[in-house]
Design a protein around this nucleic acid. Sequence first.
DNA 1: GCCAACGTTGGC
DNA 2: GCCAACGTTGGC
Length: 153
Amino acid sequence: MNYWLIKSEPEDFSIEDLANAPNRTEHWDGVRNYQARNFMRDDMKIGDRVFFYHSNCKPPGIVGLCEVASAPYPDHTAFDANCKYFDPKSNPEEPRWVMVDMKFLRRLKRMIPLQEIKQHSDALDGFALIRRGNRLSIMPVSKEHWDFLLSLE
DNA sequence: GCCAACGTTGGC
DNA sequence: GCCAACGTTGGC
């Protein structure tokens, strides 16, 4: 099993939104970064565990757990000219972007703020979230880092 | 709102 | 293939 962290701006889509979605599951659309796409396309497996991270808010941090609930499939929002995720270079015959379904598991007992995560840079050495200039919206988490982060809960 | 740190685009 | 210009992310 692999472990991941996904970012979402809570004003756009929050952990509550995922918890309230039908079947507690929603497709993770709108990823328009090749590295993040490749993680979904090549490495994510059904059942992988995922930290849900709230970004661009006060305070940012890890707020919940979810799991990968589907294989990757084409992100249809890239085909819709009225959608903000529209990409004219993607089409149904040759989709450029993919997504997976994410299923809500639970909220953390408390939010783990980014500021606190940064204070454990020794235990979390190499964790992509706290690397300088990190902008990835989907990133892998090692088993060791996963367990450590959960121990902070 | 600022701005550093990216990633992407496109001319050459 | 280089790289300047531009757009975006996201913490602060």
